[in-house]
């Protein structure tokens, strides 16, 4: 009888401690956008596309992405309307872009190229990429 009481006490204590442990373990961490924060530290742009107002590409050739110098060089067709372009970044897994792209972007100021920052999956590495656009010459 004594032994049974003892066992049940131990079992209850164990269960309780389990509950406390589960109750206190943190939820999966999310960032301010509600995106999952993972433990990936990779931080780079893997592909870049630029679309015109008709959603067709305006690139004359593939964009050159330099992940060391953190630059993207893209040449667009002669006569491209730089005020109404839709950039598309492809990033490494779990990374995100800052500022976010929400619609068409005005790239007509070629002198001061736009800078987009890639944020790694663990949200600890931030790498600014400079987007250099050149227009094809006649």
């Amino acid at each position: 009888m004594n032994a049974m009481v003892k066992y049940s006490k131990i079992t209850i204590a164990l269960l309780l401690s389990c509950l406390v442990w589960v109750g206190c373990s943190p939820d999966f961490p999310v960032d301010e956008d509600g995106l999952l924060v993972t433990n990936r530290a990779e931080c780079y742009v893997s592909n870049f596309e630029l679309l015109g107002s008709d959603f067709q590409t305006v690139r004359t050739k593939n964009a050159v992405i330099d992940t060391v110098a953190q630059t993207i060089d893209v040449e667009v067709f002669y006569g491209t309307d730089l005020r109404n372009l839709y950039p598309q970044f492809t990033l490494v897994t779990d990374a995100k872009l800052d500022p976010k792209i929400t619609g068409k972007v005005d790239f007509s100021d070629l002198v001061t190229p736009k800078v987009y920052t890639v944020v790694s999956g663990n949200r600890k590495v931030r790498k600014p990429y400079t987007l250099n656009i050149t227009v094809q010459k006649r």
Partner: peptide, 14 residues
């Protein structure tokens, strides 16, 4: 409003 005043390289069915 913000559109340009020219369109180059128009293709058939565009």
């Amino acid at each position: 409003t913000d559109m340009p005043n020219y369109a180059l390289n128009m293709r058939a069915e565009s």
